[in-house]
Design a protein around this nucleic acid. Sequence first.
DNA 1: GACAAAGGAG
DNA 2: CTCCTTTGTC
Lengths: 268, 268
Amino acid sequence: MVWKAATFNVNGIRARLPLLLEWLQEQRPHVACLQEIKCQDKDFPHDAFVEAGYHVVWKGQKSFNGVAVLTTDPPQEVVRETDREVLDGEARFLAVKTCGVWVINTYVPQGRSPQDPAFGYKLAFLKETAQWIDARFAPDVPLLWTGDINVAPDPQDVYDPQRLDGEVGFHPEERRLFKEILGWGLVDLFRHLHPDEKQFTFWDYRLPRSVQRNLGWRLDHMLVTEPLAQAARDCRVDMTPRQKPKPSDHTPLVAVFHLDALSVSSPG
Amino acid sequence: MVWKAATFNVNGIRARLPLLLEWLQEQRPHVACLQEIKCQDKDFPHDAFVEAGYHVVWKGQKSFNGVAVLTTDPPQEVVRETDREVLDGEARFLAVKTCGVWVINTYVPQGRSPQDPAFGYKLAFLKETAQWIDARFAPDVPLLWTGDINVAPDPQDVYDPQRLDGEVGFHPEERRLFKEILGWGLVDLFRHLHPDEKQFTFWDYRLPRSVQRNLGWRLDHMLVTEPLAQAARDCRVDMTPRQKPKPSDHTPLVAVFHLDALSVSSPG
DNA sequence: GACAAAGGAG
DNA sequence: CTCCTTTGTC
């Protein structure tokens, strides 16, 4: 089958509901990983997604964070608790197996500033997620770690690498860790398919006309194991939601895979 | 000329701007008196009304109250300060002369409860407005006192007169004062033209499905002197804005006058 | 239930 | 700049 996956930091699912529903109908991804839903479980607009034809798994929190995974096919497995304090302490982690693929959806902490304890938490969160994946899966399993990773790995992934060097999101330590994580057996799919493209997934609300001036960052990623990398046919940023009224500060990243091309040997 | 006047408690002019502009284009009143604009002077969306073809006079206040008068013809005179503490203390009073008619726009205090000092303030506000009019005008002058008066004068003006008797907005003391004010030489135009109609201009947001069940109050009025009463051709409630998405809790009251029929002897 | 404001966050 | 929360008002 042709399988479409998407990640979208919605920055408030209630505020973004009309835009998100419209986008889902246009794109019809088989799996959509959402971050920053910013609501408690009881306030999640579950019915709207069911009416749109999706199965929904979500993990909410008051005010901040919160992640959700929408799937057209019923999830085969769901992991909402890892028993790792760093991953479970806030609503930032959700894993779902759908269509034979394990999808790990994370909202990695932003980090606030390199001096802030939040930065240590960010690095720990990245390490723990990688460790959790390593403990459960091998690199030959079809696996997609996606979400708002909050790291721009390379100079071409920020609008002004000179000026932003050392800033949170483009700090040498997180960039090194990002590469180290890929070393386990993950491919940065967008960069893999578009080695030279300067494309972003986030533009700060606070910078005036940041979208028009393209003052962005590539923070949202699809990290895939080798079998999925070989099955990939497309991975691109969809700018349209960021250009509409009442946008999120992020825009979706979408990928297409030919799952039939997979030599599946899933242990999970 | 055929002259159309309207009053509309918008409950937040910024939140109501799309609805209000649409309604102005449909109705095209020569004068529109707005209450509860709920913004400071600097935040008033002046340009939007100028683009819609209106002259605008407004008196704002942070968070609460605030009144405005829109006119197609430039105002001939404007009164923003009365030198009466009760009328000037909060942004609830604005008077404009347009097309030869004096239009007094008030947002009368709601009163909170009959025991609350706010109720005394409400009664004082009504008396002071009547006194101010008496000091400046005679009953033979074309004059329109309109706005959210916050008094339902008669049993047919509330959805359940038994249950609501003594409640603020339908308290014997305010109803008596309302009648006393009419005694000076003002006509309750809607009731004058429709002696038996049970029609409302306000439905509480807090009552579930209050509009569908018609659990309303007639709180917004057009009080006119005799010459205007004789010039009146129509006075009706426009339900449509209250039935649209994101409505105010009030809906407009609209009247039409044949000003040529006036024997004008304006001293003001 | 829906406004506006003030405070915290990205 | 845009979220969400809390408080106050009607």
